[in-house]
Design a protein around this nucleic acid. Structure first.
Length: 230
DNA sequence: GGTTGATCATTA
DNA sequence: TAATGATCAACC
C-alpha cells in the first residue's frame, strides 16, 4: 500500500472524497500529523478542534473558518466523531449555531440544521483518553444522508426547540429537551452573550446556543453502517 | 462577537 | 459513569 498524501484541494466527486477517507483508516493521528508536517499536541485540552483540522487537511477541505459546508461543491459536510472500542460515540456532535432571533417563517425544510446534515462524511476516530492522542487510529468513514425516519426524528426535536426559542423560552431550554437533537451553550465562555427573545417578547442577552446531535442518534447511524458492512 | 473545529470537567 | 453545561483556539 502506498503511503497516502494530503489532498491539496477539495476532491471533485464524492467517490474521490470517500476513497481518500478510506485510505486514511488504520493510520494513527500521529502518523497523519507527521506526514502532513504538523505537530501532535499532548492532548486536546487546549486543541479541541485539532483532529477536525487534521482531517480537513488530509481530505482537501479548506481549513479554518468557512461559512458553508466543508466541501461546498459536493454539498458535503465533514464530521470527525470520537468513538470507543466498540465504535460507539463518546461525544455529542455539534451541528450549527441556533438562530435566536429573526426566526419568523423559518421551517425545518429551510433550517440550517437540515442543510448541514443533508450529506455528511463521518470519520470515526478512537477517542478514549487512555490512548495517547498520537496513537489513536482513524476508523472507516461513512458517507451519510438522513433517511426518512432520521429526518423525522430530527424535525420533531428541531420544531420543539425552535418553538421555545420563538416564544421567548430559550432560557428554559436545557439539554434534556429533544430526544436526538439538543440545544446547549456554544460559546467562548459564560461572558459571551448574544441577543434573544425574552418571555415578554422583549430583547434579552443570553448565552449563544448550538444544536448538537445526541449520542443515541449518531450511535444508531454508525451501527446501521456497521451492520451493512457485515 | 461570530464563525469554524469540537472536547472538557463538574455534577447528578 | 454518563450527560449537561462550560469552555478552548484560530480566524475575521
Amino acid at each position: 500500500m502506498p503511503i497516502p498524501a494530503p489532498l491539496p484541494c477539495a476532491p471533485e466527486t464524492e467517490a474521490l472524497l470517500l476513497a481518500q477517507a478510506q485510505r486514511l483508516s488504520g493510520y494513527t493521528l500521529g502518523e497523519l500529523a507527521s506526514l502532513a508536517g504538523i505537530a501532535t499536541p499532548e492532548d486536546l485540552k487546549r486543541d479541541k478542534g485539532w483532529i477536525g483540522i487534521l482531517l480537513e487537511i488530509w481530505l482537501g477541505a479548506s481549513a479554518g473558518s468557512r461559512p458553508e459546508q466543508d466541501f461546498a461543491a459536493l454539498g458535503v459536510e465533514l464530521k470527525t466523531i470520537p468513538v470507543d472500542g466498540q465504535g460507539r460515540p463518546l461525544e455529542t456532535t455539534f451541528v450549527c449555531v441556533a438562530p435566536l432571533t429573526g426566526n419568523s417563517g423559518v421551517t425545518w425544510e429551510t433550517s440550517h440544521v437540515r442543510h448541514k446534515l443533508k450529506r455528511v462524511l463521518w470519520v470515526p476516530v478512537e477517542g478514549e483518553r487512555s490512548i495517547p492522542l498520537a496513537r489513536r487510529r482513524v476508523g472507516s468513514p461513512l458517507l451519510w444522508s438522513p433517511d426518512e425516519e432520521e429526518d423525522r426524528q430530527l424535525r420533531l426535536d428541531w420544531e420543539e426547540l425552535m418553538d421555545m426559542i420563538v416564544l421567548g423560552q430559550v432560557e428554559r431550554i436545557t439539554a434534556r429537551h429533544g430526544e436526538f437533537l439538543q440545544l446547549r451553550p456554544k460559546a467562548a465562555n459564560a461572558r459571551a452573550l448574544t441577543e434573544a427573545i425574552g418571555a415578554q417578547g422583549q430583547p434579552i442577552l443570553t448565552l449563544p446556543r448550538g444544536f448538537y446531535l445526541k449520542k443515541n442518534f449518531t450511535r444508531a447511524l454508525l451501527e446501521r453502517h456497521f451492520l451493512l458492512c457485515r
